[in-house]
Design a binder for these strands. Structure first.
Lengths: 258, 258
DNA sequence: GCCCCAAACAACGA
DNA sequence: CTCGTTGTTTGGGG
């Protein structure tokens, strides 16, 4: 399951590769999680060109020349592939073939990828667009949530998943069990900066490690949410525990508020 | 807070003392938790005689000769007193004075005792009236509850409180954290028998320790829900922990299902 | 690891 | 301890 930094790089790479390509044909393999009929999607995007591909929250948005958009959520196991022969890809959901003979294939062994044509606009801010005032406002609305549950709640902030929540909290030195209503203002300020810092640095790391990546995930550089590590960079043992129903990695360096 | 066994003995003793006594006057001190006006209660029970006093669930039912009933729930801190001078009792809620000059006083320092004249009939079975088929039926309806929450839920079984739930579960060797849907049939059968056994034996113990009791509670003989004990009768250390929002005492002797 | 929903649970006030 | 209400957590299925 790629998270925001991986998805950001995927979107950037897909945009570079596919921008201005003309969609010559569409093949459907699984439409269970498509919000319209295949005929409708066919009609709307066939013979258009790709105008832009970008990430928003955990979704990759394909914007076509006619202003039509297709939002793709990879869920746990989905992936993008650019191939000349789509037969090489198993567990296909959909394939768009372009006039240059290349195809974009979206696959998913679990079949849980969602495809939404022209979805209703979502006004929950992306994790890269929030500031501390926004966090404080949402904390006032939900003062009793754990910070772990808060950060990964896509109705509050879009884009942070289980792994990066742990990374952010470790970097901000906040225990994942902290109650958001108990966080001092200055800690919220620092958290806000840390969210941006951790995510942007991860994007840079991923670009460095695999510049062309459009599938999979890169996790090797994570400081605590990393089964390969036994200690944080500062030498504290990493604790693995279910918090907010999620496998959570943290250390005693992190202060528990509330 | 007396529980079912204490209340059973209270009812039996009050019945012995007050059966066939004639109500000569009623005094009201706190009618906040009376379901009718004081005038109405006055009108219905003055000059009647007490026909029977019995326990049902956690309530004591006073049945009068005219078939009127008054249900009393002592809540956490209520109590019954039989006195010749009601002035000796603090925190009075109501006092019934009989033709023999004695008065029944119900008091409650917290004022939370409830008095219900002719309440609507409650068809949740009393803890002393259930069988294993009933338990199995209710478990199918709520398979995911913890057994601790299940036993003390007055919408499922009436009469079991926090202390006796612990005693029953210890005696039945079931961990309070067990999920009811995961209990094997034979364990439910045994639990059903254990509920009856623990409650009836407690009634006998209380009668032996204080035959005339109509107030307070007797807890000294409890096996695990007993702050004075550090080990169960079998020598296992007693664990004290919040389960289902209640202070719960249990031991490792008890099997966790689910 | 994702999202959604239902149900259980927790906390609070009356 | 009860009732109701609200908010949060948990678990299952897709």
């Amino acid at each position: 399951m790629p998270e925001l930094p991986d998805l950001t790089v995927f979107a950037s790479n897909l945009n570079t590769i596919l921008k201005n390509k003309e969609v010559k044909s569409i093949e459907f393999f699984n439409t269970k999680r498509l919000n319209v009929t295949r005929e409708e999607l066919q009609k709307f995007i066939n013979n258009t060109t790709i105008h832009e591909i970008r990430r928003s929250g955990k979704e990759i948005e394909f914007i076509f020349s006619n202003d039509i958009s297709l939002f793709v959520h990879l869920m746990l196991t989905g992936g993008f592939y650019i191939v000349r022969d789509i037969q090489n890809i198993k567990f296909k959901i959909i394939a768009l073939t372009f006039s240059d003979g290349n195809s974009l294939v979206i696959n998913d062994p679990k079949g849980l990828v969602t495809l939404k044509l022209n979805p209703v606009v979502n006004n929950v801010p992306d994790a890269l667009d929030i500031d501390s005032d926004y966090l404080k406002k949402k904390i006032l609305e939900k003062p009793k949530m754990s910070i772990k549950a808060f950060l990964i709640d896509q109705k509050i902030i879009r884009g942070i998943g289980n792994a990066y929540a742990d990374e952010i909290l470790w970097e901000a030195k906040i225990s994942p069990k902290s109650i958001v209503g108990k966080l001092p203002d200055e800690v919220i300020n620092y958290l806000s900066k840390t969210i941006t810092k951790v995510l942007l640095e991860a994007i840079e790391q991923i670009k460095k490690i695999n510049p062309g990546i459009i599938s999979g995930e890169i996790r090797e550089f994570l400081s605590v949410h990393n089964p390969r590590r036994r200690e944080s960079p500062n030498g504290y043992p990493i604790i693995k525990e279910k918090i907010a129903s999620k496998t959570t990695y943290y250390t005693e360096e992190q202060v528990l508020y509330g």
